[in-house]
Design a protein around this nucleic acid. Sequence first.
DNA 1: ATGACGATTTACT
DNA 2: GTAAATCGTCATA
Length: 198
Amino acid sequence: MARALLGKVLVRMLDDGTRLEGVIVETEAYLGTADRAAHTFGGHRSARNEAMYAIGGTAYVYFTYGMHHCVNVVAGRADEPIACLVRAVEPMAGIERMRELRAGRIAADRLRTRDLCSGPAKLTEAMAIDRSLDGIDLVTDERLCVRRGRRIGAASVAAARRVGVAYAGAWAKRRLRFYVAGNPHVSVVERTSRRRSR
DNA sequence: ATGACGATTTACT
DNA sequence: GTAAATCGTCATA
């Protein structure tokens, strides 16, 4: 599903009616209770990650590092806690509003479009996604949903190690991150991608 | 009650 | 490449 999500559109409808859209260009798979990098490793279950145990299509939004939110698309059956972290989207609609939402120390007019949603916490900031959207149904919810978008051919999908999970032992080495090769909105391009394709 | 830490981002050397 | 920012969550006491 992490591969299938590439090219789909993440749509956010703000309370004031502003519509924000971004094409998903980077995802990561988190594989249940066996995956040491996943929040559900070892069967861990709490109020924080409860949404991961819901049925596929549910949103799992978590708060981390004391300041950032990240959004996942839950992928499994009930009580099967697998999900895809959305790591980057290519802004398609409501771009100026995203610029305002992302503006902080950097003035809005100095933020490049490629810096708006090129990272899991950047895109949640740009699209005003927080814990209030945790557990919603991404198929039917008006505030946030995933829609069909552009088709991404298998040839342009790159697989790489996941980011920020070096502590996860053998699970850190698995290529569970997928992104649209060459897309400028991807957060991190694989270090060795230029040298060899291992 | 306390301490350590994180599926990150940003600025700076 | 290194470091700071910043706080909810969880393990330990």
